[in-house]
Design a protein around this nucleic acid. Sequence first.
DNA 1: ATAAATTCTTGACGAAGTTAATTAATCCTG
DNA 2: CAGGATTAATTAACTTCGTCAAGAATTTAT
Lengths: 396, 396
Amino acid sequence: MPRSAPARAPITSPAAATVFTTVLTEGPVSRVDVARRTGLSSAAVTKAARPFIEAGYLEELASEGRTGPGAGRPANPLAIRPDREYFVGVKITGDDLIGVVTDLRADVRASAHHALKSHDVGHVVRALADLVGELLAGPTPDGTSNLRERAYCLGVAVSGDVDRASGVVRYSPFLGWRDVPLASLLGEATGLTVTLENDVKALAVAEQWFGEGVGASSFALVTVGTGIGSALVVNGDLVRGAHGVAGEIGHVPVADGGPPCHCGGRGCVEAIASTEAILTRAREVSGEPALDMEDAVARARGGDEPLREVFAGAGHAIGLGLAALVNLFGPERVVVSGEGVATYDLFEEQIRRTFAVQAFGSAARCGLVIRPLPFEEWARGAAAVAIQSLFVAESV
Amino acid sequence: MPRSAPARAPITSPAAATVFTTVLTEGPVSRVDVARRTGLSSAAVTKAARPFIEAGYLEELASEGRTGPGAGRPANPLAIRPDREYFVGVKITGDDLIGVVTDLRADVRASAHHALKSHDVGHVVRALADLVGELLAGPTPDGTSNLRERAYCLGVAVSGDVDRASGVVRYSPFLGWRDVPLASLLGEATGLTVTLENDVKALAVAEQWFGEGVGASSFALVTVGTGIGSALVVNGDLVRGAHGVAGEIGHVPVADGGPPCHCGGRGCVEAIASTEAILTRAREVSGEPALDMEDAVARARGGDEPLREVFAGAGHAIGLGLAALVNLFGPERVVVSGEGVATYDLFEEQIRRTFAVQAFGSAARCGLVIRPLPFEEWARGAAAVAIQSLFVAESV
DNA sequence: ATAAATTCTTGACGAAGTTAATTAATCCTG
DNA sequence: CAGGATTAATTAACTTCGTCAAGAATTTAT
């Protein structure tokens, strides 16, 4: 059901994008403040902000009296109007679809799940369109209108090699897809403007704008779980890799002659610290081939030394991988997250210890944040990419 | 002896820099071709090129008849006039200064060495100024003038943590320096405009413009020798690291529990594959504590198996480090070079083999060049940085 | 009140690059 | 060999974006 083009303020000039993202990511800021932070002239900020205010994306807050250094006209901070437009984000996993509706600040306003019965492209497209229909069925959170009337952009996150510019899934091992033009298929099915992105990179965008990455010009996001991946932001830009591969921290070799990895190598971080690798090893040391993850975690927490060492070994491997990453890139901050980190009480200390030993010189000064990842966060990352499509021109 | 400001065409607009670098790095090109490659309009190229032609930096070649697709006015290729200006590049090592004079294409026209008796800052500055004086004493290669009259820029390469923007050596382990404002000291001593850069990064600039990196938007340069380092270029920009550290491939941990490294870690690439590490290990396996490198190489080449394995082990470690680099950052090309590579017949095969196994998916498709590094090349890198200072505005 | 400080707005100006038309130089064809 | 097709380079008018400098607005300090 194709719909008419969204009525919104076109973001054309670089300055407009700069001003808008500054207000978006750094909360209410006065125009002079935006000017100071971005290097633009205050006149340029005034001009760039006007169309956004007229279109309802930004608003001018009342001056808060006591802010400045004493004398002088008080500032009128610019703020985002989060409810001006809503965005849909969907993460496709092997088993299900996770969808959210967020506002302009990527705050989740509604969410829904949907089991995936098959990986057939047609099936996934229909299921995703249904999910989007469901998400947009209700009224807007502020009750003034219908969600469907105020959401134009859909962000979709998939693991694997994804070409964002063309909206094609080049290769997805989980889904068994090759060269699927998912963005255009979904565009037709939903009538929304679709942006497709690799899942970890999408998460990194969310993190860069609304999470731990705010204000850092370079940072890395590492996700630990079934797979181990990362996204790197250098000078504000995502590293994409000349051949579509980058951020594969899971396949950094850290243990010479270590366990074989499904990638064909040996001693990769993922061969030691992925959920599966940990479980395999836990079964070995416990001598119980039927041990499941929940039990392993419970026993390790209870003090089972051999099992504790399995988790510590995984933490050590992750720490080595982080050291490799940091020594090569020197990011300002590193965030470690993912389902695997849910049990991070068993990892964290060892990660930090190994990292501290192996990080070179002042590279060790980078901020290392280790923190669990709420599951919806993946979908929120997809929504963040949809928000980003307001700025970055892309083909459908 | 401060001199008057150099008389040269100011490169102000982005387009001017783009046009000039395109002609500089991609040989003689017609204006339309420059336009096609850069995305500029041909009118813009005409305008941007004019001041350079007037100032003698570029010239218009006669059309070569048969170039285009048949009909049509033949192109008048633009070409660099390499002898319009000369550049001085000096590399400071622990023992000596290596200096070169190059033309605008970074081709070496003269060179000189100078032993360094002390690491005292004043001494080094004087020695370097003497070296520069010596280099610039003669006539220009084309005989039309004096070198001193046609060289305005000096590039200096030092290993360690260097802040190019401010021209300060923050920390150099080799020289034992901390926070030395070398650029301004040398500026006063020589009267030239000085640009300071980390040695590996300087080499990467030369490689990006005039070497294997030409045309690649992302590539990595790895140097193997006393130390093992690298420089990474992403999206045409050098990665600098938030805390001044980046590209430390020498301290990527590749052998869990491996030999201790002077950085405090274990199993770093440098702890296995640096010249010193190889020699130490060679002495161990041969049982001869006085064995020197030359002998070790000779015997390995002669077929001494234990020694061959020491070199292969070093190659393996380098291969693992390269895999880590490539998996994380997916460059288009990788160049491995350095003094250590002089004996690369003993390394190369193992580097390639390990790399092929551990590089993830299509990341392995990156071009891997392994090649010895002429010693003057370091100084040429410094000169390339000086040439770069024509474009990038920098403080003295 | 008056002065000083600070924010925001406005309009003239300038830099840089685009499009479209023009001129230039060559090949191809009848 | 004239005329058309084709490609290259130049020119001129125009657009876009942002700066600068002046001034209007709104507060505190004296």
